[in-house]
Design a protein around this nucleic acid. Structure first.
Length: 587
RNA sequence: GGCCCCGUAGCUCAGUCGGAUAGAGCGUCGGAUUCCUAAUCCGAAGGUCAGAGGUUCAAAUCCUCUCGGGGUCGCCA
């Protein structure tokens, strides 16, 4: 348990004890009581808001209640002092030994430090990427992939049972276009000559389909390339989407993302999942035939005509209008199959669902949440995380992406250029709902400006110190388990204790970032921890007594090695969540 | 017109289930290197948290309205 939760329990316990003694009312609601590090270091190590939160119900002035609680807290083991401040905060200082204990805990726990049980093993489904199987992933997909994967890892660290899922949109018109494009490329391979832009009009023009066409040409004869034949089309779609999914799986592998479950829209439709879902809704009177108002935009679509449609009563679940389930040609809308898909996820045991989408899908959030409420009868919750655009830059100038020529910058282009670790870290240096500038030149710079480097450098510096130490100490003395037994009480400088406090904050950060579904907080935390470490390092330049390696004092040296090893472990623990490999050396 | 996201230092952005004197990097100015990687660090200056009301012990954070930027709006996914 982390130090903050531990003392929160103490505070709540004291309130209960005093209620038992009749000094406070029974049954006070302590759910809003928190124990946190104060914003100002001068206010001590911990601060509790209990007195302010409980004052009204207790019928006391906040400061009077705070005094009562502070008196009891002061007597607790590990607390060096407790005083009332401001409107009724209880500020506590902790014994240095308690912080030394935290460091020993880090060293014994290793990169598992920060693991939490708040998830309680509850299943969570994180659906992300879900790019159409019509081509390689581009940079925007990459952001969703990194975000989803890191969020999944964060939730795992917080104790959830996470499934990473990819929804393959292989049933719409776009895969027919793909099939025809692949057939055209196969024809090209069979000797009809190179296709120009005009010949690819309305098809996917990218070069990535040329090898698919060649492969297709080797498998079948020209007669089967006629996509107007339904049976042929069926085959071509299967073939081409399988090829595209291989391509995408390769892209994801290059990014270090591994998906647990791929679900095919086509399979869902074929096994009747959409009919099932719609029957389910219909039985509850949530489907009806009606006519929608035209959109009130300044330009109503020219071909708009009022038409009776099958609609879902999304307005009953907080949406603004009811939503269509069938297109005019009688096939299901994307929304209808997506309802079936989310019902399928719910029936597989996921009452906790997270979807990661691009920001251009923002208009669908309400209806999808409405649908999840409907098909689970209120039992499931869907959180949709929208990832904003990535602006790709080259030394400050926008990188041109020509979609028309099919020559857009792919995710693998970027990974090849800067490496998967850099891509992953940079993608997580902003909240998902902020647009992200990704400068190809800057992200590989070795400077303070580059957060990836800055954090990696801190880790590498620790490794460098340990390499130097290996000249004076046995390898067995330097492993974390041995360092946990070093004379840690000799760590007495305020900057050293501050560094431990920063480490002690990691478990708390894991929990809050996981609950907020915000993995970028991990990247910021690591930047902060790295900064504190670099600062301490430089103090050793001003004052040689603060250096980590002191030839004349083996005990203190071991204590400091324990300290820096702890930093490296926490950084590694955080980088593991982000899916970034901690480096032992920078060149 | 409806809905969603955003508006915080000159720039790029953190901080938002309400907490004390609002933070970081860059940029500007001034410093630190016979030394465990100066690839780093220390200090200074820089704010009407878009604006106006409201809720309360307490608002950048919650509510309402206004302004500004972006996204989106049946038969694309």
């Amino acid at each position: 348990m982390n130090v903050f939760n531990r003392f929160r329990d103490e505070v709540v316990g004291i309130v209960a004890d005093m209620a038992g003694e009749g000094r406070l009312p029974q049954g006070l609601d302590c759910s809003r009581v928190s124990v946190e590090p104060p914003r100002e270091a001068a206010h001590g190590d911990l601060t509790a808001n209990a007195a302010m939160v409980l004052a009204k119900a207790a019928g006391m002035k906040p400061r009077d209640l705070a005094e009562l609680l502070a008196e009891r807290l002061e007597g607790l083991e590990g607390i060096a002092g407790a005083e009332v401040a401001g409107p009724g905060f209880i500020n506590m200082r902790l014994d240095a030994e308690l912080w030394h204990g935290c460091l020993a805990d880090v060293l014994r726990t290793g990169t598992a430090y920060g693991d939490s049980s708040i998830g309680g093993g509850a299943p969570v489904n994180v659906e992300f990427v879900s790019a159409n199987p019509t081509g390689p992933l581009h940079v925007g997909h990459g952001r969703g992939a990194v975000f989803g994967d890191a969020l999944a890892a964060l939730l795992e660290k917080a104790g959830y049972d996470v499934t990473r899922e990819y929804y393959i949109n292989d049933a719409g018109a776009q895969v027919e276009v793909l099939a025809k494009s692949a057939a055209a490329r196969a024809g090209e391979a069979l000797g009809t000559g190179e296709l120009d832009a005009a010949a690819m009009e309305g098809l996917y023009p990218g070069d990535y389909l040329k090898p698919v066409g060649r492969k297709l040409a080797e498998r079948i004869d020209a007669a089967r390339l006629d996509a107007d034949d339904a049976e042929n089309l069926e085959f071509l779609i299967r073939f081409a989407t399988d090829e595209m999914m291989d391509l995408i799986r390769g892209d994801l592998r290059a990014l270090g993302v591994s998906i647990d479950v791929f679900t095919s829209e086509r399979d869902l439709v074929e096994r009747g999942a959409v009919d099932d879902a719609l029957r389910f809704l219909d039985e509850r009177d949530l489907v009806y035939t009606g006519v929608l108002e035209p959109p009130k935009g300044k330009q109503a679509p020219e071909d708009w005509e009022p038409r009776p449609q099958m609609l879902f009563r999304a307005t009953r679940f907080g949406d603004d209008v009811d939503r269509p389930l069938k297109k005019s040609d009688g096939t299901w809308t994307y929304f209808a199959t997506d309802i079936a898909y989310h019902l399928d996820k719910y029936r597989r045991g996921f009452a906790n669902q997270i979807d990661v989408w691009g920001a251009d899908h923002g208009g669908y959030v309400k209806r999808m949440r409405a649908a999840v409420k409907a098909v689970s009868e209120g039992a499931a919750d869907l959180d949709v995380k929208l990832c904003q655009m990535v602006k790709l830059l080259e030394a400050g100038a926008p990188v041109k992406m020509s979609k028309r020529a099919g020559a857009f910058v792919t995710l693998t282009d970027v990974i090849d250029r800067v490496g998967k670790d850099v891509v992953r870290f940079i993608m997580l240096t902003r909240g998902s709902d902020a647009t992200l500038d990704f400068d190809l030149a800057k992200v590989t710079e070795q400077s303070r400006e580059n957060p990836v480097f800055y954090v990696q450098y801190a880790h590498a510096r620790v490794c460098s110190v340990l390499r130097h130490a290996a000249e004076e100490f046995e390898a067995t003395e330097l492993v974390p388990e041995s360092l946990a037994a070093a004379p840690l009480t000799r760590l007495a400088d305020a900057a050293e204790i501050d560094l431990i406090k920063a480490m002690a904050d990691w478990p708390r950060l894991v929990e809050s970032a996981a609950q907020a579904h915000e993995p970028h907080r991990v990247a910021y935390y690591l930047g902060d921890l790295a900064a504190r470490f670099h600062a301490l390092w430089n103090k050793g330049k001003d004052d040689a007594r603060l250096r980590f390696l002191l030839p004349e004092d083996r005990g203190l040296t071991l204590a400091r090695l324990a300290l820096v090893q702890g930093v490296a472990l926490v950084i590694a623990s955080g980088l593991n969540v982000l899916g970034v490999t901690p480096l032992e050396e920078l060149r």
